[in-house]
Design a protein around this nucleic acid. Structure first.
Lengths: 325, 325
DNA sequence: TTGAAAGCGCTAACAG
DNA sequence: CTGTTAGCGCTTTCAA
């Protein structure tokens, strides 16, 4: 592999000039540009980004920390982040934390040793000093980490309200809310939105905590559906809704005739179920893209107009509620 | 941030000794170890991996190139790769190629400029010189890139045969094969496996090409189901199978009573559908993990016992075929 | 506009 | 067992 010295030599200029040429910095004569360009071409020269990083103390990559990329919620986010990163010549390092703070810390440390330019993180813990004490920029997605850390997320409370209203409008009188893990910001917000919608109305409600996992959600739903005559379910995630659909099916309860279901997230899964799932969709791609743009601004030392961006959720009416197909 | 010189100074030794200590190389007195360790501790010293890379010409990360992480086939693979990478202190860079050769080349180049240690790639093109001419190790997953490149993949032909046999055993007489994109290795292999199973048997078959996408698969399936009395579908992917389920549902065809369906891949989606999908499961996690281990061996200069690993596919019988629940 | 030279932080001979 | 020193390939003053 040719290095900058080879190029300088072949072009008959100094390495400093080549460096300036490479970075469009300082004055360079047209003549110099020409010869350098030719030399670069001829030697098929590619600058070592590592050597550059050693000087600038910054590598062109960003760390993405998510609980688990297998959770269908994250791939779209990751995709968006990568697309924007590519646009700015950054590269994305994928880190699965399993929600474990030790793993998060490990990545935070290791990547900083590699001069990571910044982080995008989906996490929430009581202890946040590892994030607030970082000396590279960071932006949070989906979950608030700390008031001082920029955030891009959906307006979950409002989204849940809209989803629940839809069930109400469709005539549901006894609604089950499968809320997400308590303590998890977005899940709590969605529960609030659910309560906002049912409050004061003459309907029965039942609230149960259910993880964002299919099997667990299915069995939780089955248990409740066996005991009570539920006619509507508001699930805090599409996966939970899918579990509920399965439970209803196995109990011979027809959806949407006897039971209507609304999910949350708007993942691909929702559209691929049969019947397809009515869901409160988050614009995952947009969340990822905005977070990525925000982080890059921070990395480049620009000011942020807004430190928190709320994306509106949108109700997508499909086959699991009656007004749908 | 403290550097190695600070540590050496504080410990009262030379940087060389500190370096040796850090890398467990060469002899170091217990006394030296003690003072260095103390200095490291005190200064909270973390070696710059970038400076190290500049010397060794190798950064501790591997590039993962997949068509699109949003495709549910890839997250599990990515997860496995990352898990193994973590075990060996490597970090994973996620690259979405959209099957575009220019994007693949872009990543290949950029990451090499960053001294990437190796690549794991899911791709297939006629032109393969960008891969074969690489000067870092590479292993292919899912699709064969070139005979010279190590591969980890499922035995697709055999898997498809097993899946189709299941339909046959369940009494299907008119089977539709929704094959994947032609030219794509695994899809072609699955078609062969399908043919292996039906060949010579007294049953009617229909073969149609269908991309690994839900909407397209749904409409393709709907068209055919309207025109012909199909009683079994072998789909080359779970997504296509999901599309077929939706089509059947909208046409009032009941699954599995009137129509039985077998998918392929064994993604999470298959288990979350209602009824849950009988599918030929690939052990995605294992493929990823093995590929990752293989690559790391290559990076470390070890020999590979096998350059091609075939994983057996496994039929998971569920609700879309009659012998299932 | 350009070049010489001093680093960035670490590794790896080589000499002791 | 340890230290000196010359790089790795690039950026960045500082002079010219």
């Amino acid at each position: 592999m040719a290095n900058i010295r080879d190029v300088a030599q072949k072009a008959g200029v100094s390495v400093a000039t080549v460096s300036r040429y490479l970075n469009n910095k300082g004055y360079i004569s047209e003549e110099a540009k020409r010869v350098i360009s030719a030399a670069v071409e001829e030697l098929n020269y590619r600058p070592s980004l590592v050597a550059r990083s050693l000087n600038t103390k910054q590598a062109m990559f960003i760390g993405l920390i998510v609980p688990d990329i297998v959770n269908p919620f994250f791939p779209e986010l990751a995709r968006a982040i990568e697309d924007v990163a590519l646009e700015y010549d950054y590269t994305v390092v994928l880190c699965n934390s399993d929600e474990k703070i030790e793993k998060e810390i490990h990545y935070l440390n290791t990547l900083q040793q590699k001069y990571v330019a910044g982080f995008i993180v989906a996490a929430s813990h009581a202890e946040t000093s590892h994030y607030t004490d970082l000396n590279v920029p960071i932006v949070a997605i989906d979950r608030r980490i700390h008031p001082s850390i920029p955030l891009v997320a959906t307006d979950n409370r409002e989204g849940a309200r809209i989803g629940t209203e839809h069930l109400l409008a469709n005539g549901c009188r006894k609604i089950l809310c499968m809320k997400g893990p308590s303590g998890l910001g977005p899940a709590d917000d969605r529960l609030m939105g659910f309560m906002d919608a049912v409050e004061g109305k003459d309907i029965e409600i039942e609230v149960v905590e259910s993880p964002f996992q299919f099997d667990a959600s299915e069995s939780i739903a089955r248990t409740i559906l066996q005991q009570q005559s539920i006619d509507g379910i508001f699930a805090s995630s599409d996966v939970s809704a899918a579990g509920a659909m399965k439970a209803a099916y196995s109990l011979g309860i027809s959806v949407p005739d006897q039971l209507q279901i609304v999910g949350y997230d708007g993942t691909m899964l929702a559209g691929q179920l049969t019947p397809s799932l009515t869901t409160v969709a988050q614009d995952l791609y947009q969340i990822g893209a905005l977070a990525s743009r925000m982080l890059i601004k921070l990395i480049e030392g620009q000011e942020l107009e807004e430190r928190e961006i709320q994306i509106q959720a949108e109700l997508i009416i499909r086959g699991t509620t009656r007004s749908g197909a």
